[in-house]
Design a protein around this nucleic acid. Structure first.
Lengths: 147, 147
DNA sequence: TTGACATCGTTGCAATCGCAACGAAACTTG
DNA sequence: CAAGTTTCGTTGCGATTGCAACGATGTCAA
């Protein structure tokens, strides 16, 4: 061989570590939500945002909960079909959708939210006093210019 | 409505935050690797592990770099087809593959690795002294029992 | 007002995904 | 050694993905 390659440790590479940890954190909850309620991660995000924002468009979902618009659209369609949300045109701007939580959706969320909160609490407990630094780092990574 | 739902802030929910930050961190590098070298994230992981482990099986990839085996298999097939790795049966156990870096692969890595290292350095710079706590938290999340 | 342009949500499509099933090879047990 | 079991990598398949294209609607300037 003509020359050695530089050392590189994948296990310390941040994009990799975040991906592994993120997949792992999502997997537990996702499995449970899927098994018990038939809800995917995308659908969960739609539900959460509709729950606390009230009336929501596809564009809102794209911007606020990081869902690519076709993904948001399909998740919303499934949720509407399952009766968890209502889907109406926004009368003030008929390009926009107006998604809102149905009564059935409210019932669902009253079961989903405590599970998520408990999961979060468990994570915070495990992470302990590193939490504030972790949050700061996540905030930076989610917002800094990277290129 | 018969009762209020508990408050829940998705923007503070760790599985969500990790997913957003992870996607974002991967996206920059992935775009560049794809555009300049035609390499996907899965292929990049295979290359890294083959580069520093030498001879590698699909099972190794699954366990060491978190690639589901069919994904690892297809990534390895593409890399072999492109001439970046060799793919031979392991003579000591013919169920196993023996993947190794080709000369062409070595050349590729001599260009890929510095880019990744620079990216990591940039991230460490941005994150500053929160880095050690971040690493500790990631380690915990990647290994703790969650259920 | 009209025509050019921008925005929004949906959908077609090819690529990718993950899971299960499978054949081949290697162990295990009797 | 034979039969049953486990491990490994591949592949078939239905589901999901992201992107681009599109129709519908809204905005803006001439």
């Amino acid at each position: 061989m003509d020359h050695d390659l530089p050392d590189f440790d994948l296990s310390r590479f941040l994009p990799y570590r975040l991906s592994v940890a993120g997949d792992r954190l999502s997997a537990g909850l996702a499995r449970r939500y899927r098994a018990e309620f038939g809800i995917s991660v995308a659908e969960w995000r739609v539900l959460v945002h509709v729950t606390d924002a009230g009336e929501v468009s596809i564009r809102d979902l794209e911007r606020r909960v990081n869902l690519e618009k076709s993904k948001a659209s399909r998740a919303a369609t499934r949720l509407a079909q399952a009766g968890y949300i209502r889907k109406a045109p926004n009368p003030a701007d008929r390009r926009l959708l107006c998604l809102s939580l149905s009564e059935k959706g409210r019932e669902l969320m009253s079961r989903l939210l405590p599970i998520a909160s408990a999961y979060q609490a468990r994570l915070e407990e495990i992470i302990g006093d590193r939490m504030s630094e972790l949050e700061a780092a996540l905030e930076i990574m989610a917002t800094s210019e990277l290129d």
